[in-house]
Amino acid sequence: MSGTETVLAAVTDEPLDPAVVDAFVWRADAGAVVSFQGIVRDHDGGRTVTALDYRAHPDAEAFLRACCAEVAERTGLRVAAAHRVGALTIGDIALVAAVAAPHRAEAFAACAELVETIKARVPIWKRQRFDDGASEWVGL
């Protein structure tokens, strides 16, 4: 990847490293790096969650890249996102998104926009597993 690229997007079954995503977006003119980590929590809707399984459409990374490119083009900022797929447990990071900007307000706004765009458009679905043995798909 060249130093002139403004977007990083990855879908992987490997654990995510937020430092890699943050490092991609940061440049000397950036006074703020705002990043988001979506972490597997132990509950949802009053039920105890024990694990999640994420599955992705074969073109999910292209969708993720398009979301990042759209936010980068609209804002003029460097953006990056990585989403994990496969079996995740409580505390694992499922999504990392980061934006660098000269000032914090624009970085916060762009990162929030990026996360919402990813959640709305990227074809990645999760199966929640509950402590009673039941499971449910979310996002189908």
Rank of each mutant, 00 (worst) to 15 (best):
P123I: 01
P18G: 06
F24G: 14
T4F: 01
R78I: 02
E113R: 12
I93E: 08
P123Q: 00
F63E: 15
D29G: 03
A82H: 13
A98C: 13
P123M: 00
M1T: 04
R47L: 10
H57A: 14
A97C: 12
V20M: 05
G3L: 12
R121S: 13
T75N: 13
A109T: 11
V96Y: 06
R78Q: 09
G3P: 00
G139I: 02
R55W: 00
L64Q: 13
A62N: 07
L114I: 08
D92V: 01
A9S: 10
I124T: 09
V85T: 15
Q37G: 14
S135Y: 10
M1L: 00
P58C: 08
F108A: 04
G133R: 14
R41F: 11
E106S: 14
A19W: 00
V33L: 00
D29N: 06
I118T: 07
A9K: 03
F108P: 13
G139H: 12
K126Y: 08
D132V: 07
D132C: 13
A109W: 05
A120R: 14
G86V: 04
C111D: 09
R65D: 13
R74M: 02
V34S: 15
T117L: 14
R78S: 13
A107G: 15
V40F: 04
A60G: 14
G86D: 06
